[in-house]
Design a protein around this nucleic acid. Structure first.
Length: 563
DNA sequence: CGACCCTGCGCG
DNA sequence: AAAGCGCGCAGGGTCG
């Protein structure tokens, strides 16, 4: 059963009950927001799938009133997938001209309350029963596209997982990540010195800057300016063409040590200093905005606060509430395991069974060290051709021909400008017009050497993108299924009380890693749930193919203590 | 002054 | 100009 929800004006919502194939089962009802909330609560027990345009817009309104739903269908996110998927290439949704669903209204920045989130216009008219047609017609197109494609099961799972991700993202934003500003403050003070006014350098940075100037024999150079710094380094006789840390590390000179430290600390100050703390932490919680589907591959992005880049340096400020714990779990060697399963490479899957996959590769005698195994695998998935990674690749290819063939096939497809598709049906975007033009130019009779090499280089670039897309994208699908399963089981474990987040709940997600904030007494159960969910996700994507998705899990008081 | 690009670095 | 993918953000620098 579906419940279609659409805004009507700024303070009303139209709800329509739809049957399995999307036919309205009666007239729609227009509800005020309070009536809508009651409606959701009353109907949730019958297990509907709520169909709405944009979870990020409508669900926070429910969460603010401590209302959660189990399942939804996010029309906006689903549209993007179906519009691009090779599995729905023949569908009307794919063949139609681009429309309003292809240029979604961006979500306003502000955490603005209530009605602002409903300012979508009721623009598509209604049918005789009052059903909003723009949303209904889109939903019908989507249902048809899935039902008529060759492998509806995959897309159905993908859309459900993507939509569950949207619910989780909104819930995590709402709940926030537990953050101790006192600890954060102490940490900053210890590293940088006492806080000073914005624009000034704290003591520690100031003295490092002074040392840098002395060592360079330049009394005015500003280490924050790459241009000035580069010039000063060259003047001091150092053979550098950039001021990147990795390049400086190669050099031997008294300025290097203070300079590297300066860069480290100045990064801490600008990215996660006091200003950051004051703009992003409220009432002991970090509330970043997650963007499901924000990356072409299907990974999440985040906006504001750099939520997906929390440096290890400050993870000590993430601390469970008194009487609570953090259960942190990380999928070990996720992408290579995904590659093994995608390519049905039994040998590679066996190397990772019950053990660290890289250690397993070493144990199989393919390479000598774990580090070699890792760099070779990453190189295979990213398309490295030179260096250590390039040298080791042939050995991987010999040991795991199926896995390596899959990456090579994906790369060749990209080089030809073709698209590739993940396990569940998310397809890569086609290369842009500039790319195609560059390729065409190389075949022109008057093409220059430069034209040809540029075209070749761009073709290889795109090949590396598609090579990685298929693995990264499928890993993202696995992670969505993992998280959706965790969420479902956590809700079954402990029914919610009056307080929305008084029971175990997800508070953080980072591509292949999740964090659950849980009352201490339930931590063991939560660990089991997280572990079992990984196996479930593996079966959802790869049925009975024998690949392990191993986790590193830890129950800790602070994120800094997680492995 | 804002809009934009570049450099550099954090995360997976 | 880091070999090799995907991101976001801050600060410097330039342009209109």
């Amino acid at each position: 059963m579906y419940q279609l929800v659409a805004p009507a004006g700024t303070d009303r919502v139209v709800v329509t009950v739809l049957d399995r194939v999307g036919t309205p089962r009666g007239p729609s009802r227009t509800l005020t927001l309070p009536a809508f909330r009651r409606y959701v609560v009353e109907n949730e027990s019958s297990g509907p799938r709520w169909v709405w345009e944009d979870t990020a817009r409508i669900y926070p309104e429910l969460l603010r009133h401590s209302i959660r739903v189990a399942r939804c269908h996010d029309l906006r996110l689903s549209h993007v997938i179906l519009r691009n998927s090779s599995l729905t290439a023949q569908s009307d949704i794919r063949l139609g001209e681009p429309g309003p669903w292809d240029t979604p209204v961006p979500l306003e920045q502000a955490e603005a309350s209530g009605p602002a989130l409903f300012e979508l216009v009721h623009d598509g008219g209604t049918d005789a029963g009052g059903t909003p047609l723009r949303q209904l017609e889109e939903f019908l197109l989507q249902l048809r596209a899935v039902a008529e494609c060759a492998e509806p099961g995959r897309l159905r799972l993908l859309l459900a997982a993507e939509s569950a991700g949207a619910l989780i993202a909104a819930e995590m934003t709402h709940a926030g990540l537990p953050w101790r500003v006192d600890i954060h403050h102490d940490l900053l003070t210890q590293e940088l010195g006492p806080r000073v006014a914005p624009g000034l350098r704290p003591e520690r940075l100031e003295s490092l800057a002074a040392r840098i100037r002395v060592e360079l024999g330049d009394s005015r150079v500003n280490p924050d300016s790459p241009t000035e710094l580069l010039r000063a380094l060259q003047k001091a006789g150092l053979p550098v063409t950039s001021t990147r840390a990795w390049a400086l590390r190669e050099l031997e000179h008294p300025v290097i040590e203070p300079l590297l430290l300066y860069k480290k600390l100045s990064r801490l100050l600008s990215a996660n200093g006091w200003v950051w703390m004051e703009s992003w932490i409220t009432n002991g919680r970090f509330h970043p905005e997650y963007l499901p589907g924000g990356v072409v591959t299907g990974r999440w992005a985040a906006r504001g606060g750099g939520a997906l880049q929390l440096p290890k340096q400050i993870r000590g400020a993430v601390v469970a509430d008194p009487g609570w714990k953090l259960v942190v779990a990380d999928a070990a060697q996720l992408e290579p395991r995904i590659l093994a399963a995608l390519s049905a490479d039994l040998t590679m899957a066996a190397a990772g069974r019950g053990t660290d996959l890289y250690a397993g590769i070493v144990a199989s005698g393919v390479v000598e060290t774990r580090d070699h195994a890792k760099v070779a695998m990453l190189g295979a998935m990213y398309g490295a051709t030179t260096g250590e990674s390039g040298r080791l690749l042939p050995r991987l290819a010999k040991a795991y021909p199926r896995a390596i063939a899959l990456t090579e096939t994906a790369a060749r497809a990209g080089e030809r400008g073709e698209i590739v598709t993940t396990r569940l049906g998310r397809s890569s975007p086609p290369p842009g017009a500039a790319w195609a033009a560059a390729q065409a130019k190389a075949y022109d009779p008057v093409a220059t050497r430069l034209d040809e090499s540029r075209a070749r280089s761009q073709a290889r670039d795109w090949g590396r993108f598609t090579r990685n897309f298929i693995v990264q994208g499928t890993a993202a699908e696995w992670a969505l299924c993992w998280m959706a399963e965790i969420r479902k089981e956590l809700r079954a474990l402990a029914p919610e009380g009056d307080e929305l987040f008084s029971t175990p709940h997800l508070v953080f997600f980072l591509h292949d890693e999740v964090m659950v904030h849980t009352p201490e007494g339930l931590a063991d159960r939560v660990e089991s749930i997280v572990t079992a969910a990984a196996a479930t996700a593996g079966r959802l994507l790869f049925a009975d193919f024998p690949v392990d998705f191993m986790l590193t899990t830890a129950t800790v008081d602070t994120y800094a203590a997680a492995p």
